[in-house]
Design a protein around this nucleic acid. Structure first.
Length: 786
DNA sequence: CCACATAATCTTTTT
DNA sequence: GATTATGTGG
């Protein structure tokens, strides 16, 4: 990152007195400069009118409302180039923030392609990475040391669990996860524990939540650690309590650019606002229709309110879409039109007609996966690149079905954002060692590795250390040291612990002498960690050793241990988007910002998508967010968009009947083609979607209980590699069922689960205690009175 | 203290 | 079904 133009980062060295002209906000200097620069630089020529305006309006606040595929990244990139070209700012006077590391990487690449080495000087990164960079400079001012550890969700949960236990709170009733989200949400809203009122704390843990928050923060401070939320929250504290520090950044950041503004939470909004107060040159790019992180505290309100927050803001709309065919756009637009709270944009394109959006129904998830895999093979035969095909699912676990299928038929695929390298156990352990070496106060890391490999230091020893640490207000490692001076541990454990602590002292001494890879290798060898896996005879041990080797290799790219650990914590998405030609499988969330020729959107079923839990928690606004998610998914497609659903789906061990998603009904008839072919089993999977009345307001099965319905149940036996051994179909014709006769306490019969008793009713969903099959949730149309 | 068995919980999305 | 928390015997 140290290029020729890079920022001499020592803040004492900030070139306040930079000789370059320093244009003031909206200043004349800027205009004068602009006038003297080439009137028509080549990079502006390829922009359309709105894009051009968004780029050249350099001064003052700007909001770019950029619909999907309208070239927002291009605007951001060109804008940076333009600012540099006009000499309005030095690279290190530009702050460019994104949400994901992938977006940051893309920005960096594309800006680099335009301006060369100057890109290295730009403050370009995610909110969190920029936050860390600032925080490391001023850590002491918020009670941390500069080498603080960034902890992930796992560590967070472990700490919270300990706290809950210490407070004697029933973990079954008040799970640590829930407490974690409450604290996260507070942090998202920019609230420190001092600012949280007891009455805000609600029911959780008998009103002890605010206390737990305080304890949690104190625990982190003593361990010299910060969680994700802290990276921003500490910055806010820093900025508001130390105006001189804020002032440094005011002077520094002449131009601020923000990507995906619709996803900012309150903390991020405040962070930006504080920083932008200085020069007032802030340009935010976003799309309210793509706001999909409300559950993480994002506030669509930030973008809806922009003109009040930044008075005099210029709003530019990008509506011309360069990505998708008219049918895809029409379908996506019609869908999103069902949302009420929108700024409103009309995407248009002038490309010629393409194929219609295809909708297909299947019997079950397996058949769906099979059919999509066949489609993929078909595309492959027609010379389509696999790289240009994506399967986008609502939830992570849905990727499995496709993986299984692709493995069987031998189509190469990658799961984007799937299980991550740094989340593997052996890697986390290894990192645990590095963390303790780099930062002795890191008790969470120490706890993790103290008995890996087995050293005879189990629960009992650990408890003793914790007790001592609490009593003496010291870090766990120090407590361990102190424990050696007592006779509390059994002799064996004591020697073992003594050896470990000695080793840590030794490694720490080597830390700055050895090149990183050697250091890591030494630690892993001397600790016995490598040996532990060498001795392990389980099937995945060799793979783990490989991973450890890869880790040793990869640390070579970093300047320091801290550098590497930051990367691990913040850039969890290691780049697996190589050039290999593979089908992409990922969640809809992970797909934001990407595009593909062909996009499959499977699993469009009520309950799954829109997701029931989401709906339960958030009601209407959650439904709208789900709809935006659908919109995001659809607008990823350039040429071909194929939506599908299954009638029954297996979640863990249970079979659940499913109804096609309401989103399917919201698609416009004219742009959609319902697969006319009958399903393999001789019947369209869902009779309601015939061409005649498809898309029109039709009766929903759940409010037209009297309908006569024919169901076909298929039994299939397949071998491990998908060979069909036996298939038979059984038609199940149900009697005309009078509507609304189901009530609590009724005896009913279910084709698969047999006889049972209705315990409760929620709309069309029944909770039934079956005699044989136990408790199930079932859709009412699948049972009949017994 | 550890190894193995059983039981509970999980599946919404992520920096 | 798979991973992880809990329990029991060595």
């Amino acid at each position: 990152m140290a290029g020729p133009m890079s920022d001499p980062f020592d803040l004492d060295d900030i070139p306040f007195d930079d000789p370059a002209p320093a244009p003031r906000p909206g200043g004349i200097a800027a205009r004068a400069l602009a006038a003297s620069a080439p009137l028509d630089p080549p990079y502006l020529k390829t922009l359309n009118e709105s894009q051009h305006e968004a780029v050249v309006t350099t001064d003052g606040p700007v909001l770019v409302l950029a619909g999907a595929g309208t070239g927002k990244t291009r605007v951001l990139v060109t804008r940076i180039a333009h600012i540099l070209n006009l000499g309005l700012a030095k690279p290190w006077e530009i702050l460019s923030v994104t949400f994901t590391n992938r977006a940051a990487r893309e920005m960096r690449d594309r800006v680099g392609a335009m301006v060369g080495g100057a890109v290295d000087g730009i403050w370009l990164g995610t909110f969190h990475s920029i936050g860390v960079r600032i925080l490391r400079q001023h850590a002491e001012l918020v009670g941390l040391k500069s080498n603080f550890t960034i902890i992930d969700r796992d560590d967070q949960l472990r700490v919270l669990k300990q706290l809950l236990k210490a407070e004697n709170i029933d973990e079954k009733r008040w799970p640590a996860r829930a407490l974690g989200s409450i604290i996260d949400r507070w942090k998202d809203r920019g609230l420190t524990w001092q600012q949280v009122q007891h009455e805000d704390a609600g029911e959780f843990a008998m009103g002890k939540t605010a206390t737990l928050y305080r304890e949690y923060q104190q625990r982190l401070l003593t361990q010299n650690a910060a969680d994700f939320g802290d990276l921003l929250l500490h910055c806010l504290t820093l900025f508001s309590e130390h105006k001189d520090v804020l002032e440094i950044y005011h002077r520094r950041f002449r131009y601020i650019l923000v990507d995906e503004y619709q996803d900012t939470n309150v903390a991020q909004y405040l962070w930006l606002r504080l920083l932008a107060q200085g020069q007032r040159n802030i340009c935010c790019v976003g799309d309210d229709d793509q706001s999909i992180y409300g559950w993480r505290g994002a506030e669509v309100g930030n973008i809806l309110r922009y003109e009040q927050d930044f008075p005099g803001a210029k709003v530019v709309r990008l509506e011309r879409n360069y990505r998708s065919t008219p049918h895809i756009l029409a379908a996506a637009s019609a869908l999103i039109a069902h949302n009420a709270d929108r700024l409103g944009k009309t995407l248009w394109t002038d490309v010629a007609d393409g194929e219609k959006v295809r909708v297909r129904g299947f019997w079950d998830g397996e058949e769906e996966a099979r059919a999509i895999a066949e489609d993929v093979e078909d595309l492959q035969r027609k010379q389509h690149r696999l790289d240009e095909i994506a399967i986008l699912v609502r939830a992570g676990y849905q990727t499995r079905e496709f993986e299984d299928r692709f493995l069987v038929i031998g189509v190469p695929y990658r799961v984007v954002g799937g299980p991550r390298f740094y989340e593997r156990r052996e890697i986390r352990d290894a990192i645990g060692y590095l963390r303790v070496v780099s930062q002795p106060e890191d008790g969470m890391a120490f706890e993790r590795i103290v008995n890996a490999p087995k050293r005879g230091l189990g629960e009992v020893s650990l408890q003793a250390m914790h007790r001592l640490a609490r009593a003496g207000q010291t870090a766990l490692l120090q407590a361990a040291q102190d424990l050696l001076g007592t006779d509390e541990l059994r002799p064996q454990a004591r020697t073992s612990l003594g050896n470990l602590l000695e080793s840590f002292a030794r490694w720490r001494a080597m830390k700055d002498q050895l090149p990183l890879p050697e250091l890591v290798e030494t630690i892993l060898d001397e600790s016995g960690y490598t040996e532990m896996w060498q001795r392990d005879k389980s099937i995945d041990a060799p793979g783990r050793l490989d991973n450890l080797r890869e880790l040793v290799h990869s640390v070579g790219e970093y300047e320091s241990l801290t550098d590497f650990l930051d990367h691990v914590s913040l850039v969890m998405d290691h780049d697996n988007s190589g050039n290999d030609d593979m089908v992409n499988i990922m969640t809809l969330h992970a797909a934001k910002g990407l595009e593909f020729d062909t996009v499959f959107l499977p699993g469009w079923e009520e309950g799954l998508f829109p997701n029931q839990r989401s709906l339960d928690e958030g009601g209407t606004s959650a439904l709208e967010e789900e709809r935006r998610l659908a919109h995001v998914g659809m607008t990823r497609a350039r040429q071909s968009l194929r939506i599908s659903f299954a009638q029954s789906r297996r979640t863990f061990a249970e079979w659940n009947s499913a109804i096609p998603s309401r989103f399917i009904d919201e698609l416009p008839v004219d742009s959609v083609e319902v697969a006319a072919e009958a399903s393999v089993w001789g019947q369209p999977a869902y009779g309601r979607h015939d061409d005649a009345n498809f898309g029109a307001p039709v009766e929903k099965p759940w409010d037209s209980p009297g309908r006569r319905r024919m169901h076909r149940r298929n039994h299939r036996t397949v071998t491990r590699d998908g060979q069909l051994i036996e298939a038979r179909a059984e038609a199940v014709d149900w009697d005309e069922r009078p509507g609304g006769t189901c009530s609590e306490g009724d005896r009913v019969f279910h084709q698969k689960f047999g006889y049972g008793l209705i315990e409760s009713i929620d709309g069309n969903r029944l909770d039934i205690q079956f005699d044989k099959a136990g408790f199930k949730k079932v859709i009412d149309s699948f049972v009949r009175p017994a």
